[in-house]
């Protein structure tokens, strides 16, 4: 019971739920700062032209109720940075639609490739993740047979995971909070 209450109340514990792998919108502050800033107004979702931002109910603990999240496999962020513009509290920072600013401020997570699942690594030339990436050769690069290599500048928007043709997906975003 005490553990349950702690999980519900403490954001650091709650966000580590193994069953939930979610991203915060691009430019979001680190998790604890984000939660203390966000006023749950829902404007980021209303500004998102891709409708990728969804809202928690109680599944991620009481403190994340009505806060925005992105499940990249369902719908990934297209890095338009509109949510930061409308966020009144700065929980999602304003990020200019420029490469330097995006690389500087956006950290949603990082992609990892499962070489056992990946078609290219298994010898069937694919390269879809590389073509879906908004920052090709900055965040991801392909080698021989289109084998993907995630680079250090990957910001975790999730477009590669969204577009992966393998089921289950061979490339996944590890969210920044885990």
């Amino acid at each position: 019971m005490v553990a349950l209450a702690q999980t519900a109340l403490n954001p650091a514990v709650a966000s580590n739920k193994p069953s939930l792998r979610y991203l915060r919108p691009p430019g979001a502050l680190p998790e604890e700062d984000f939660l203390s800033r966000c006023i749950h107004c829902g404007q980021c979702g209303e500004a998102c032209p891709n409708r990728c931002i969804n809202y928690f109910e109680l599944e991620n603990g009481l403190s994340s109720i009505d806060t925005p999240y992105i499940i990249p496999r369902e719908k990934a962020c297209i890095l338009c940075m509109k949510c930061g513009d409308v966020c009144p509290t700065g929980a999602i920072q304003q990020v200019k639609y420029e490469l330097e600013d995006i690389l500087d401020k956006v950290n949603m997570g990082r992609a990892v490739v499962d070489r056992q699942l990946c078609l290219s690594w298994q010898g069937k030339t694919c390269g879809v993740c590389y073509r879906a990436c908004k920052l090709p050769d900055i965040a991801i690069r392909v080698g021989m047979l289109e084998q993907p290599h995630v680079l250090d500048d990957c910001i975790g928007c999730g477009l590669c995971e969204r577009s992966c043709i393998q089921i289950p997906q061979a490339i996944k975003i590890l969210p920044r909070q885990t």
């Binding site: 954001p11 203390s36 749950h40 809202y55 109720i65």
Partner: peptide, 22 residues
């Protein structure tokens, strides 16, 4: 205590606006 704006969850105008959007 929780570090999250929980008053938003018990304030009807905020709830109504949000729920209509949802």
């Amino acid at each position: 205590i929780t570090g999250s704006v929980l008053v938003a969850g018990i304030y009807p105008p905020a709830i109504v606006g949000r729920e209509i959007y949802y």
